[in-house]
Design a protein around this nucleic acid. Sequence first.
DNA 1: CTGCTTCTTAGACAGATGTCTAAGACCTCC
DNA 2: GGAGGTCTTAGACATCTGTCTAAGAAGCAG
Lengths: 118, 118
Amino acid sequence: MPKTLPVVDVTGPICCSPVGAGAMAEPEALEVALRLKAIADPTRVRLMSMLLAAPDGEACGCDLAPAVGLTDATVSHHLGQLLKAGLVTRERRGMNVWYSPDRSALSALIRVIDPDCC
Amino acid sequence: MPKTLPVVDVTGPICCSPVGAGAMAEPEALEVALRLKAIADPTRVRLMSMLLAAPDGEACGCDLAPAVGLTDATVSHHLGQLLKAGLVTRERRGMNVWYSPDRSALSALIRVIDPDCC
DNA sequence: CTGCTTCTTAGACAGATGTCTAAGACCTCC
DNA sequence: GGAGGTCTTAGACATCTGTCTAAGAAGCAG
């Protein structure tokens, strides 16, 4: 998969799960897989859970890096992956960069692979 | 992960608090990530969707391999990954091996990642 | 302007991953 | 038993990935 994340709106209204609706086509499966890859990493699962559990619905890198026990650069890389997948948003405020989870994007991804949806 | 591959049993049913319930601990996140990695591949997403959409809830390798356009060996490898993650079951009947999706395992995995769950 | 903190980018490197071919294992039918 | 189909395993190989260090970019406080 030497391919960058395609810019496609996964947060849109998907009401049925393609995964259970029939044999999924290749490009469709690729998009789903690329987004799944974005969370399919222990560090990124932790980062995502921290963001989802954050009091104000956001957290800055300065808090996240020590929390996962990795370098600033490595954490920035992971957050960049989540950003590219549309699972988080980022906003610079002063010296810090604040990350927020995109709950609807995550929900949409989940719905796509849910065998019980619809 | 600079260290060697951690040995974690991923075969059993996943059972841990959802990603939104609080900062997820490292071993917990690892288990979730390993299972997600199992589906985070375009070929395996397609295989999973074919199994979920199969008329009798199962399909044999001889049908799946040509359907995804890859070698028997490669498809066997992918199905092996899904098997190790507990997302499918396999049963030899005569000359063929029949694979069935484990819907509850997939649902359980989804529930852990669902930000709206609990 | 000069430091100091925070974050991103670039480069490097070990380890993991997806794919293939080749060979073995399992099964059926003649 | 032998021929042939189906599936897994082993080995090889190119690519991808997660991590680090080092260096740049952005911003605040003296």
